[in-house]
Amino acid sequence: MADMKRAADLLQSWDRILILSHRSPDGDTLGCASALSRALLALGKSVQFRCADPVPKNMAYLFAGIEYGDFEPERIVTVDVADKALLGALEPLGERVDLAIDHHGTHRPFAREIWVDDTAGAACQMIYKLVQVMGVEITPEIADCLYTGISTDTGCFRYSNASPETHRIAASLLECGARAAEINRAMFETKSRAAVELLKHVYGDMEFYHDGRCAVLCLTRALLEETGAGESELTGVSSFVRQVEGVLIGLTLQERGENEYKVSMRSNAPASAQAVCARFGGGGHKFAAGCTIHAPLEEAKAQIVAACGEALKAF
């Protein structure tokens, strides 16, 4: 198990580096990738970035101005990836990862070297410290990347993972030039027409189970095609489901393939989303986790709802 100093030493000793984010990328994995890319380029390294899914349009600014090289990577680094299966179509590269930087307590080791800090509210908190140890100046561009990851993974500092250290780091990033107001507006207050259409279904099609303590939304391919919603519009939908009064577990089932559903689960204390998703081979954090179920929709829904019911019996 590596630590921050070990991770910094490794990165400073390498030259041609490929950075990988997880599929269905969010602000944290992309904030890590873009910030680390900028830091390594500042050190004179050759850098590439890959993700199985496209970068959402509202996060394209994270990579503005970055010039990636065309070369055969010598080393591979993953950021905010708790399991190589989360690399999606890039999973075969998981066998070749040299360093994994992650903040999930459910991390399943796959890299030669691992730096995991499950006390960090976002993986971008780890990259913030790493960049400083490597002696790289946190420019306004790097600050934007890191602030984006921290803000999105903490729900704009509303979730319990936003610790005092999280706020201190965010304040430091503001001092470095992070455009907090613009970023928060783009991440939390700006909705595309597709997102508005999707939200109509979020509130209209939501189903409730177990005395209203479990809320479920099914996102079929047909629904996503009807609304025109892409990955950027899906960000935060599970949190909307959790916001209904009395709901302890809110989840979405997103159709990913034939008889394949991605479950995104959010919970309120004392319920643990992580514990439920672990029963299906998934993982994450206590109040935010996910898994994949291979079954027809009604069967997949029945399985996850039953597991939620078992978990809720204790409360």
Rank of each mutant, 00 (worst) to 15 (best):
Val136Gln: 02
Glu137Ser: 12
Glu137Lys: 12
Glu137Gly: 06
Glu137Gln: 12
Thr139Phe: 09
Thr139Gln: 08
Pro140Gly: 07
Pro140Asn: 08
Glu141Ser: 11
Ile142Val: 14
Ala143Glu: 09
Leu146Phe: 10
Thr148Gly: 07
Gly149Asn: 08
Ile150Trp: 02
Ile150Met: 10
Ile150Lys: 06
Ser151Asp: 08
Ser151Val: 14
Ser151Asn: 09
Thr152Leu: 06
Asp153Cys: 01
Asp153Lys: 01
Thr154Glu: 01
Gly155Lys: 05
Gly155Ile: 06
Cys156Gln: 10
Phe157Leu: 09
Arg158Asp: 02
Arg158Pro: 01
Arg158Glu: 09
Arg158Tyr: 07
Tyr159Ser: 01
Tyr159Gln: 00
Tyr159Val: 02
Ser160His: 07
Ser160Asp: 09
Asn161Leu: 00
Ala162Asp: 01
Ala162Val: 03
Ser163Met: 03
Pro164Val: 03
Pro164Arg: 00
Pro164Tyr: 00
Pro164Cys: 00
Glu165His: 03
Thr166Gln: 00
His167Leu: 14
His167Asp: 02
Arg168Asp: 10
Ala171Ile: 06
Ala171Gly: 14
Ala171Leu: 10
Ser172Cys: 04
Ser172Pro: 00
Leu173Asp: 07
Leu173Trp: 08
Leu173Tyr: 08
Leu174Ala: 15
Leu174Val: 15
Glu175Ile: 02
Glu175Lys: 10
Cys176Ala: 15
Gly177Cys: 05
Ala178Phe: 06
Ala180Ile: 13
Ala180Leu: 13
Ala181Asp: 15
Ala181Glu: 15
Glu182Phe: 04
Ile183Ala: 10
Ile183Ser: 10
Asn184Thr: 11
Asn184Ser: 12
Arg185Ser: 12
Arg185Gln: 14
Met187Lys: 07
Met187Ala: 14
Glu189Val: 05
Glu189Ile: 06
Lys191Thr: 09
Lys191Asn: 11
Lys191Leu: 14
Ser192Phe: 12
Ser192Pro: 11
Arg193His: 11
Arg193Gly: 00
Val196Tyr: 13
Glu197Val: 04
Leu199Gln: 12
Leu199Tyr: 13
Lys200Glu: 13
Lys200Asp: 13
Lys200Ile: 05
Lys200Gln: 11
His201Tyr: 13
His201Arg: 14
His201Trp: 11
Val202Asp: 04
Val202Ala: 12
Val202Tyr: 07
Val202His: 05
Gly204Glu: 10
Asp205Ser: 12
Met206Tyr: 07
Met206Lys: 07
Phe208Thr: 09
Phe208Ser: 06
Phe208His: 02
Tyr209Asn: 05
Tyr209Met: 08
His210Trp: 12
His210Asn: 13
His210Val: 14
Asp211Phe: 07
Gly212Glu: 01
Gly212Phe: 02
Gly212Ile: 01
Gly212Thr: 01
Arg213Cys: 06
Arg213Pro: 04
Arg213Tyr: 01
Cys214Tyr: 03
Cys214Gln: 03
Ala215Arg: 05
Ala215Tyr: 05
Val216Glu: 05
Val216Met: 09
Leu217Arg: 01
Leu217Ala: 03
Cys218Tyr: 01
Thr220Asn: 05
Thr220Gln: 02
Thr220Cys: 04
Arg221His: 12
Arg221Gly: 15
Leu223Met: 13
Leu224Asn: 14
Glu226Trp: 07
Glu226Cys: 09
Thr227Pro: 11
Thr227Phe: 06
Ala229Met: 13
Gly230Met: 11
Gly230Ser: 13
Glu231Tyr: 00
Ser232Gly: 15
Glu233Ser: 10
